[in-house]
Computed example of a mutant assay.
Amino acid sequence: MTTGEQSGKAPIVTAEGVTKTFGRGGSAMQVLKGASLSVQPQPLVAIKGRSGSGKTTLLNLLGALDRPTEGTVRFLQTDIGGLSDGKRTRLRRTGIGLIFQSFALVPTMSAYENVEFALRIARVPLAGRRGMAEHALELVGLKDRMKHRPLEMSGGEQQRVAIARAIAHKPSLILSDEPTAELDSRTGLQIMKVFIDLVRREGMTIVLTTHDAAVMELADHVHVLEDGRIVEER
């Protein structure tokens, strides 16, 4: 029984029998081999798996960054694999927030400018951008550091800026690829506290990939990806 089915709620995102093949002919490599996953609203979900197991590939499909070779990915009951490139881009701008392992901040911009720039790209009207950017930075505990540039901040602070950038447009779903991989254990736990607060207080749903046992202990659900399939859930 899947997570969504257990709760009786409609899942926020699902993958059904998803395969993903890169390349063609003799050089083709199948990374996902019929993976299925269902995530209900407002949990913190971790996807665990060895390096090369397909975690990032699955996350990219859930986030409308790529299309499955076979199978279906649905976000709020919409088949996102069947959408045009333009519609998938608009979906990411409004309903999905993406957090990358490398932070991917613009080094010449302050924390505030990095978040505000993302809102500009999402075509949020000018009148609302400042308040939304400041609120997002406040949620991650950086309101007093919003004028600092990335090189003036610690790794944990940079990751919090990246989180603020991902949540500023108030998406329903946050996807994060190995968010604590570049951080020490203490800072990693601080980042997880931010995620937990976003789920509990702001009603967001977060799906992340991880190798970190401490992160898995804090997650509401853990899915194990092995040989291209989800083989275990707790």
Rank of each mutant, 00 (worst) to 15 (best):
V231K: 01
S53W: 01
Q30N: 04
D197M: 11
K87T: 12
D212H: 05
S53V: 00
R24F: 08
A136R: 10
T89Y: 11
A64Q: 03
S36K: 05
M153V: 12
E232N: 13
I80Y: 06
V161F: 03
S172E: 14
I191D: 01
S102T: 13
G34I: 12
P43L: 14
E226D: 09
S172Y: 09
V18E: 01
F22Y: 15
R234H: 13
L44G: 03
R201L: 14
A181V: 02
M29P: 10
L58W: 00
T108Y: 08
G86M: 07
A46N: 04
R149T: 09
T3W: 14
A166K: 00
R145G: 03
R92K: 06
K170Q: 15
R90Y: 05
A219R: 02
G81K: 04
R50N: 07
I121Y: 12
S185Y: 05
L61P: 01
I163E: 01
R129Y: 07
N114G: 08
T94H: 14
Q77A: 15
T78D: 14
I121E: 11
Q190G: 15
L175F: 03
N114T: 12
H223A: 09
A46R: 05
I196W: 02
S53G: 00
L65E: 07
L44Q: 06
D197I: 12
R90V: 03
T187F: 04
K87S: 11
R234T: 15
R24A: 15
I230H: 00
L151R: 15
D220G: 05
G131V: 10
S7Y: 13
L126C: 03
A104G: 09
A118G: 13
N114F: 11
D212S: 11
T94L: 13
V194F: 02
G71T: 04
G71C: 09
M29E: 07
P43N: 13
R165Y: 06
K143P: 10
V215R: 00
A213F: 10
G95N: 12
T19M: 09
V224L: 12
S38V: 09
V222T: 12
H211G: 08
V13E: 03
Q30S: 00
I80L: 08
V45P: 02
K55H: 03
